[in-house]
């Protein structure tokens, strides 16, 4: 059983490693956010008495890299379906749950790696974690967030037949999840309506946990973040597995 999950996982990593243009392309956006917003808004942020904006922003941009890659990895099953490869997997003597686990782990690993690269990039443009010991648990939370959104991606993609819904998913799900999560602005001073919405956004807790571990400031509290992130992950994996098991080709 582990061998099959492993080979599914390995396949995703090979595909990731071989698509260098995609890998590099998907780093452009986080870099742009770090440089343009991090440097550009820095003085305004400081004048408002909020401290160093780049330090505040970097965990948010790491979250952004993870959510984009993770949902995209989950949605990749639509490609597998269009190019026929999904059939090869679906007729094999492997349970739907094993396939779902293999895919989720593979996609999450790719998203996690993408997050690590953004962490390293942000450290080259001026971000520095408050204490380096916090980086290790932060990596753990990054993987958890990656799992959460890969499972969500698979759940969304399972009932879809083609890529026509892709723009819809990007504009009405991924973008709002990112922009409303508090990745770019502090939630404590945000209007009530906005913080209320953010409270329903799993990414809020992910970014908040990164900040707790990397810069030592957390809005919700680290323990609460991790409990909620774990809860969302279990929920999305369950929904994803159920929807995936219903796939007809």
């Amino acid at each position: 059983m582990f061998k099959k999950i492993y080979i599914l996982w390995l396949r995703q990593l090979k595909r990731y490693w071989r698509s260098k243009p995609r890998m590099i392309g998907s780093l452009g956006q986080p870099l742009l956010f770090l440089v343009a917003l991090g440097y550009g808004m820095g003085s305004v942020f400081r004048q408002a008495g909020q401290g160093n904006y780049l330090n505040f922003l970097a965990p948010g941009v790491i979250g952004m890299a993870i959510i984009f890659t993770a949902i995209f990895s989950g949605i990749e099953i639509i490609w597998d379906r269009q190019f026929g490869f999904l059939k090869e997997v679906m007729v094999s003597p492997m349970s739907r749950l094993e396939i779902m686990i293999g895919r989720t782990l593979g996609g999450a690993t790719v998203a996690f790696l993408q997050g690590v690269i953004v962490l390293l990039i942000s450290m080259t443009v001026g971000f520095w974690p408050q204490n380096l010991v916090g980086v290790i648990p932060a990596l753990g939370v990054m993987f958890l967030v990656a799992l959460l959104f890969t499972a969500l991606g698979i759940a969304i993609a399972s009932p879809l037949n083609d890529m026509q819904g892709f723009q819809l998913i990007m504009n009405f799900l991924v973008m709002p999840l990112f922009f409303l999560s508090g990745a770019l602005f502090p939630l404590q001073d945000a209007p009530e309506a906005l913080s209320a919405i953010a409270a329903f956004d799993p990414l809020s807790y992910g970014v908040d946990a990164f900040r707790g571990l990397l810069i030592g400031s957390s809005h919700y509290g680290l323990g609460f973040d991790i409990v909620l992130l774990s809860g969302f992950t279990v929920l999305f994996i369950a929904i994803g597995s159920w929807l995936f098991s219903k796939i007809q080709i």
């Binding site: 090979k14 595909r15 190019f83 090869e88 997997v89």
Partner: peptide, 18 residues
């Protein structure tokens, strides 16, 4: 129903493991 991003041998191995 092949994976275009894998080699011929990798496609075969993948199948063998499944």
């Amino acid at each position: 129903s092949l994976d275009d991003e894998l080699t011929a041998q990798e496609n075969m191995d993948f199948h063998g493991v499944l």
